[in-house]
Design a protein around this nucleic acid. Structure first.
Lengths: 324, 324
DNA sequence: CTGAAAGCGCTTACAG
DNA sequence: CTGAAAGCGCTTACAG
């Protein structure tokens, strides 16, 4: 295009080999004028590297995911990677679809957030051999993960409720998948009650979907039990917000009549009234840790462990009252 | 791999040419065993078509975007396209980065949601010549758009407030960009007041960022004005939620002391108390319309117009009271 | 420092 | 119906 070979152009674009100053200028100018943009497909084909990271999340309503993605973005960009995001709606079909799409498109690695990891996908992950990190949940120990210590966090939240004098504590848990965080948070609940010598009342544990609407529906079920609990531990803030809504709807006050405890610390949790007490952690940190280690995996670098735990703490606000 | 030429394999994968049944079976089996996945980069290079749509949105906290993306996804998949999502945080730098990345990666088209479209990007769009649709906002008439009629919707919302007896109406508007929806919603506000013969009080119009926190800050500014308005029209629900929060914080009641009207109809708008009155529309419909027409553009098909309007309506809930 | 050439993994006329 | 070959737009040894 500018009196130079195509190889030279490649070299100035990539700075891969020394190029004479005048020539470089000439090439740069020509590129400017032609409005030239290199074809990444061709480059990736030749280099067998795409610098693309696939990120799969179920949905995006959950503001925690915004932080997560920002964390991933931040360190990815730092290392020269770009991310491709896709929404799976949490279905196996979509997860499989995007997983394969990322492989076909030659993504260098994948970060996967999945509430309900099915065996079929796990198998696919194993045979494909593509670097992958699971995020936000505990896992089979064959695939690397970063998440909060769900069992402990839930245990601490419920123990806190017990310390406030509650003994009738219900849980709105997430439908159980293999070993998703839903199960682990429930385990924490069980452990806390056991330790306090409180037995579990079946009608006070209900499986819920993850939307606010699901929280409303699930709360109604609890209210239909023979007796009412004094506190509800919810597996997620969105469920908690739904639960609070239903309670207010039927004329019960939070926390005077019923206390509520959430999990996730989404932004809305502090904008609703009463402000929601919840388990907080940094989704951004999860994202950064995942991206950082995924890139190490891709580069074949040494990795410090295969499971990273991000810290959490209880954010006590106004949705829990003390019983005496 | 299975005693056939590579060309034949290509033909069975794509069903592009008739292939003998036995041979096809043989190829399929071999693919199964090898766990073969075609290299999309190579295919795209050869076909000069990626079946990839780039989608750029500023952030993902706004639940409206979840619907938007689902709408886009739905029709994209229907036509065999996959989408690549990227978060721009609304900055020009990121928008430029991802815009170019999508071009380099040979995306067939782009859907862009941008609150503050800068001239530099617009220029890039024009010279690049890549099919692109702008979403959620009005625009220069050179680039195709799909959005709600922001001026009219805002006009209707404010007119409704006036009909309820309000005459002291403030607006928390979005910082003005060229002709972004922020400006248009403000125009609707102005028109409604003018028509009612109410003059605009400068201290009651404040520019706000788009987060809930921004809403809090902006509401504080209004409260610092010499006198208080009786109603606030907010450019987005998130701003409205922030405003309501600040009001409650300083001991004012909504709607008894101050009425609030939002815009967007995000899910949280009906979960907070009082339930927020707001302008609703289907972001999913915006997404579907955008994807459908982008694909037409890509295929060089006839297009019915260059600007599509999605309908809206007022969802009157509990955050507005009637003055007498 | 620079160019010609092979190769990345596919698709698609062109022959047969 | 099937294969050999050229070509998609790059990168990278290999010569010079």
């Amino acid at each position: 295009m500018a009196g130079v070979s195509i190889a030279t152009v490649s070299r100035v674009i990539n700075n891969s080999k020394p190029v004479n100053h005048d020539v470089r200028i000439r090439v740069l100018k020509a590129m400017e004028q032609t409005n030239f943009l290199p074809n990444a497909m061709a480059r990736n084909l030749a280099k067998k590297e795409s610098l693309l990271l696939g990120v799969m999340v179920p949905e995006v309503k959950n503001t925690v995911l915004d932080d997560l993605i920002n964390g991933i973005n931040q360190v990815s960009r730092l290392y020269g990677y770009n991310i491709m995001l896709s929404l799976t709606a949490g279905t196996l079909e979509n997860e499989l679809h995007y997983f394969n799409m990322f492989r076909e498109i030659q993504a260098d690695g994948i970060i996967l957030a999945s509430e309900n990891l099915k065996e079929e996908l796990v198998k696919g992950i194993k045979v494909s051999n593509i670097p992958l990190i699971l995020v936000g949940r505990d896992s089979l120990d064959t695939v690397p993960t970063v998440h909060v210590d769900n069992v402990t966090a839930a245990y601490e939240a419920v123990t806190y409720l017990i310390q406030q004098g509650h003994r009738k504590i219900a849980m709105l848990r997430v439908r159980s998948g293999d070993i998703a965080s839903g199960d682990h948070r429930y385990q924490g609940y069980v452990r806390a009650l056991n330790e306090a010598g409180i037995s579990i009342y079946k009608d006070w544990v209900v499986e819920s979907g993850i939307s606010v609407e699901d929280g409303i529906t699930s709360m109604r079920k609890i209210c239909e039990a023979e007796s009412m609990p004094t506190a509800i531990f919810c597996a997620t803030d969105r469920i908690a917000i739904g639960a609070m809504n239903y309670l207010l709807e039927i004329g019960l006050r939070v926390p005077e009549d019923v206390s509520i405890f959430g999990f996730d610390g989404i932004d809305m949790s502090s904008f609703i009234r009463p402000k929601l007490s919840t388990v907080k952690y940094s989704a951004e940190e999860i994202g950064m840790t995942a991206a950082r280690n995924l890139i190490k995996l891709i580069r074949g670098e040494e990795i410090s462990s295969r499971h990273w735990i991000v810290s959490h703490y209880l954010e006590n606000r106004d949705s829990v009252c003390t019983l005496n």
